[in-house]
Amino acid sequence: MASDSSMSTIFTDFQKYLDDEQEIRERIRVLVRDLEQTTREIHTQLQLVHQQGGIKQVQDHCKKAEASFATLREQYRKLAEVVPSGQYYRFHDHWKFSMQRCCFLSAFITYLQTEKLVTREETAAKLGVELSRDNGFHMDLDDFLIGVLQVASELSRLAVNAVTASDYSRPLRIAKFVAELDAGYRLLNLKNDALRKRFDGLKYDLKKVEEVVYDLTIRGLKPTEDPPKE
């Protein structure tokens, strides 16, 4: 019967589609696992800046961490090959968290090195992904912005630990930076999504840093002049 065969074709075609999709997802999963491994290593390396001695060797730690970005780039290149072109968002859920983590790492390193906010261009280049969707495997703007927000909470921790390590000027600079970041994020008209949720935590980071500055000021520990930048 004609209708019989046409209906079974429809279902077998769909099963094939499911199989193919499953295969792609499986391959993506494996590659993302590698990516996560690398980001964990970089993260561990960067955690050292919070330690007593670490805060004085920030640049060393950054350099070591940066070396691993070559691995990340290679891993992103492999991932980009697996994702069918024009279907980035079909599989986006698989890598969005590691992408956010990577953006965070890149932004944190840039801050430690230059005390500036990383740009999208720099981050994309560092990860070896495209900036714009038109050019292929790219960095989603939301993921980037979420990653940068993680820097704020990392910095609020660093401000506290800097004081412990008797570095009294750093918290002031951090406060200024986080405040500027806050002003930037306030410009965005956010929807009720993941980014918004992350952004809601920013005020606590800011508050924490401001408290550190307050403590330094009230005890006369605040350096009087403009802190010399290294």
Binding site: L117, T119, A183, L187, L188, N189
Partner: peptide, 17 residues
Amino acid sequence: PVIQAFRLYQSELDTRH
């Protein structure tokens, strides 16, 4: 530069939303 960058992000997000 931070504010300028965020102005860009703002318009991009708005367009998409």
